[in-house]
């Protein structure tokens, strides 16, 4: 058993157990934290495969954005997860059935070596390690051959931004805003008025 195998088994066991805890934990905050743990283990598995770019993306996208979003949802919204889980036993048979189907599919894939004869184009399952690391490889095609497509995806993000602003921005009336430009531009001559205060009377 080499170090590589040891690492693989360690990370995959932790990933499997933390995903089990995700669905069984009573406290939803714990579930989300274990979800993050299983994502991190998944990305470690990608590193072992030599796909370090995918590993980093997994951490940035899933841990950085999705999991934190879940955490916010869990903490800010008062959702009663116990109530949602009430129908668990009811759906259990269906879940087990689906699990069995998936398992048999996996086993079938593993035992049948005729998969390639179905007409799928043959590709090697192990990534082709080039001299460069695959972040660099990806970058080299992304910014040259697929430069236009890269730009197009940027426009999709721009549209999403415009849309979310248009659909949610409200200009409220009656809100007192601080306008620093106006404040700085005030002239002391117009603002300070000298008045003579008559004795025993004060000023309105």
């Amino acid at each position: 058993m080499t170090l590589y195998d040891l690492c693989f088994y360690f990370f995959s066991i932790v990933a499997v157990f933390s995903s089990l805890i995700v669905i069984s934990a009573k406290n939803t905050v714990h579930s989300v934290l274990f979800l993050i743990l299983s994502f991190i283990n998944g990305s470690a598995l990608f590193v072992l495969l030599g796909a370090e770019f995918l590993a980093m993306i997994l951490i940035v996208v899933y841990v950085g954005a999705v999991a934190v979003l879940f955490l916010f949802v869990v903490m800010m919204l008062d959702i009663n997860f116990v109530k949602i889980r009430e129908g668990f036993l009811q759906y259990m048979p269906l879940g087990i059935l689906l699990g069995v189907v998936l398992l048999t599919e996996l086993i079938l894939v593993l035992i049948s070596k005729k998969m390639m004869s179905s007409g799928l184009v043959e590709y090697s399952s192990i990534p082709n390690f080039s001299q460069n690391e695959n972040t660099k490889d990806l970058g080299e095609v992304l910014y040259t051959d697929y430069f236009l497509l890269f730009q197009l995806s940027g426009f999709i993000l721009l549209i999403a931004m415009i849309g979310s602003i248009t659909l949610t921005l409200r200009t409220r009336s009656g809100v007192k805003k601080q306008n620093i430009f106006d404040q700085v531009n005030l002239d002391s001559k117009n603002q300070i008025v000298k008045k003579k205060v008559p004795l025993n009377k004060g000023i309105e």
Partner: peptide, 13 residues
């Protein structure tokens, strides 16, 4: 796919 996405995303809005 990217063309379809650009088109339909703006249509949703």
């Amino acid at each position: 796919y990217l063309g379809i996405e650009i088109q339909s995303l703006s249509l949703y809005i």
